[in-house]
Amino acid sequence: MSDTHSATHPAHLAHHFDTVEQQRESSSLGMWVFLAQEVMFFGGLFLAYLVYRSSYPVAFTEASHHLDVVLGGTNTVILIASSLTMALAVYCAQTGKKNLLVVFLLATMLLGLAFLGIKAVEYHHKYVDKLIPGMGFSYSGPNAQHAQLFFCLYFAMTGMHALHMVIGIGLLIWLVNDARKGRFTPDYHSHIEIFGLYWHFVDIVWIFLFPLLYLIGLHAPGGGH
């Protein structure tokens, strides 16, 4: 590394990139490749749901009546709001508003925690109602076996989604800490940008989970609830 070389390179520009812009686009592209893998990962779960729902439509409609639409709907609103605060955090990072960046990252984190709190309440309801497969699952009626399949998928899909939220909140703690130290500038904030992509992706997964799990049985009469 000669001095003339480093003089033209900002400190945050890695030596294998020509420009800051190229570095930023590369990190975004890398995140999108990771998210493409995530699409396939959740895609497998959605496929399993699709196959079993088309095989046992009556049992799935009936079982979905045991989910709480109000809690699920509230969580949908909370998660979309957290996507807005995350988008605003990226905006603040781009425009150099350091204090507001911390505020919006914290808001995103709080909304994420609220989502997980409501999810925990829902899981507790399922525990009390004996609807957790493998933990004293008990369901009356002719569709019990296929309803159990619905709840297996419900816990697998919302559980994997919740795990992604927990990881996201863990990353937010780290980002808030760095943002408070003023590490991010309009020239250098790829961490914020890339984390935003992750957070929005998790939001998109829920955008599909909510109608598929909570809303499918609402129009059908007599769900037993």
Binding site: S28, L29, W32, L35, A36, V39
Partner: peptide, 12 residues
């Protein structure tokens, strides 16, 4: 980036 995004949904 657009190509990668479109590709991921094509594979899905």
């Amino acid at each position: 980036t657009k190509l990668v995004v479109a590709g991921s949904f094509l594979w899905l």
